[in-house]
Design a binder for these strands. Structure first.
Lengths: 224, 224, 224, 224
DNA sequence: AATGAATGAGTGTTCATTCAT
DNA sequence: AATGAATGAACACTCATTCAT
């Protein structure tokens, strides 16, 4: 029993305990393999109470997704100061992201693995959060592109500046790749002992920032 | 019925039909939601026959993972000529990868989503394949680093050459990020109509190659 | 909520509200499908209060049966003047009966359908009421039989008077048939738009009275 | 166990055993109170087999209704010779009906009590059968009316012949009353020891036939 | 080589009922 | 007079798996 069995608590508290238990169980067992029995026991309550408060397994899972998605975006938002330069914002955001995923592996599993593999409805729920993050990253890329030309960090040979074709689709793909890389690194960092959130963030920052910079300056890699 | 119900076929053929049906079902329904009944019916055989040949649901799933992992790595291997320059090899590998995942969404779902979310055993199975790919990418990165100095693609101001700290852990992280980005882009490309394998490959190549190049040249982004 | 949620009312009133809600719910959902939750909510009170006043689902249902049975017999009793001739009494009684069942479909459903299909105890409860009515009808038949001979309504060829075999069992069967026909017609009239209580009563009166009359006069249909 | 537990029997046989058990259980416990566990045990099989063959509780109940309704109508149909006079047909039909209901009390309970109190779908299923019977009775009434005038069984004073107002609605009400009376008498006969099917039929025949006869001859009871 | 017949063990869900206040 | 919090026991239904042929 994960929670001390204290009786007669207000509904709001019990609900949080249930969500805690559910996130843990869903994250470790997976959505389908997690049984309501196990969740209830871990929460220290009877199954009917879980149903009374959370309605159904689907609703319970949705509630988990919403809570965890909110907490993750909140963590990132809090970690970033929107007044700072774009690269600094990206760096801070990545660090906040990797820190959160490292500290909440079950929640991250729910969002990243479980929610995306068990029905359109759940996937849509995370997709909303993900789009928020992708949009944020896209903003940073565009901001970086704008600031890249005047004082380009590397030798700009006066060549063609920013590619006019670096349109929406292009940027979307880049943001997608960056976010995807971050998601993968999160799992990798969690699974590899000795890799801190800071290191993961540094790795990705190195990988991405210079690449983006070069790209902005109109020197893309061109397929043969 | 997915397969015409022809009776009395050699075991090897029947097994492939079963694996086809299983990959499709696992890929679309998910491991737990897929029922042996559905798989047997889709394969056009009776359930006991599936058990006779494949033993159990777990074994059947493992067989699916092995077959699909083999097919994927084979596709990438075939697409790459190890004699060509590193960037060309990466480009060809990415194209082969995105092409394969686009043409075998169910198999890719089995490998990327299902196998990783349903037990350590299955995850280990794909991890082996993934490590193979990561190792390959790591080789490419190192090879690129070696070739980067003599004839650097961009203006090398004769600055410090390759970072001596670009050790194993660093490279591992980079390869991990690249592979992770590729995996995410595969899902994105599959889900976004109008994005071809070639475009996905180009996006990632742009994102990665220049970034790696800059990195090799000793101009990494440094955390504040 | 069916009832305005006024707090702190005397017990008797609350009990009636609960019985109202219960009759409605039992009548529409059926005994088993009706949940104490729904009844409590419809009554505008909390579930424990229902238990405090009515003890259990069984007791609540029994209370419903008693109240509705009492109301129905009272309605019939009030509609009949025991000083009038037998046929007039029957006519008035039928009219009162059909009127009541039309105006209280849920109560009628509780008595006629639910109580008879969910346990001997409940069935016995309605059986008591039914016997009262059957006894009343039996009286009327006997009274009619007595009055039939002196001034037979139709051409009495002076044939054998009342059948000496028209014993208790015989009369009981007739009363039973009449009451059963009435019950069925009640459901039919409720379900058939445009059929009034008066019409239902007339139909049955036509059907029954002449038949009874002929019977009294010793001209029964004889089996081959 | 009601059935000897013989293993491995053809599906058709098992299905009948299951329906036997289901009719008995539904008839005695009621639809909702009957548990699939009990039915399966009574049938001498495991629960999953019941589901494999009959799909769901609803489907199982529907199958019961259909089988019992078919058997009842078949029994009545078989008992009646459509070449004989109307009164003889009615007599034979009633006898067949009372005989069947006496011999299959559970089936009769399913049709008469359970099916009508648990959902529109089930009710519609029996309503079809009932309408068939009501239509048959209606035919008999009309046929009787036709044959009543020329050679009226009782003293026809040459008075007004058949009531021109004896329209469709009127006849429908009469048939409804007759069938309803029969249904009620069936329950009564079943519950009253010593009442045979023949006696029940005779009681109703006496009650109804003379009444109908008088009615045909234009001497209806008229409301005050 | 292949299958119709059958089940043990479990799932999500609901309900009548009580306790503490 | 009245309730929010909580549960034991059951139910319909499903599934991976095996047996007998």
């Amino acid at each position: 029993m994960g929670t001390v069995k204290t009786k007669r608590m207000p509904r709001a508290v019990r609900e949080q305990q249930m969500l805690d238990a559910a996130v843990r169980t869903f994250g470790q067992r997976g959505y389908m393999a997690a049984s309501m029995d196990e969740i209830a026991e871990l929460a220290g309550v009877s199954k009917p109470l879980v149903y009374l408060y959370l309605n159904s397994k689907e609703d319970l899972f949705t509630a988990c997704i919403r809570r965890e998605a909110g907490a993750l975006t909140e963590a990132v938002r809090t970690g970033v100061d929107r007044e700072l330069p774009a690269d600094r914002q990206l760096w801070d955001g990545l660090r906040a992201f990797f820190t959160y995923t490292a500290e909440h592996p079950d929640g991250w599993s729910v969002l990243h693995l479980q929610a995306r593999t068990h029905g359109e409805g759940f996937a849509a729920e995370v997709a909303a959060m993900r789009e928020e993050i992708v949009a944020f990253v896209t903003q940073l890329i565009v901001a970086a592109a704008r600031s890249a030309l005047p004082h380009s960090r590397t030798c700009s040979r006066g060549g063609t500046p920013i590619d006019p074709d670096l349109g929406e689709g292009e940027v979307a793909g880049l943001a997608e790749a960056l976010v995807g890389a971050a998601e993968s690194l999160a799992a990798w960092a969690n699974a590899t002992p000795g890799v801190t959130a800071r290191q993961a963030a540094a790795t990705l920052m190195n990988f991405a920032w210079a690449g983006l910079g070069n790209l902005m300056e109109g020197r893309p890699w061109s397929p043969p």
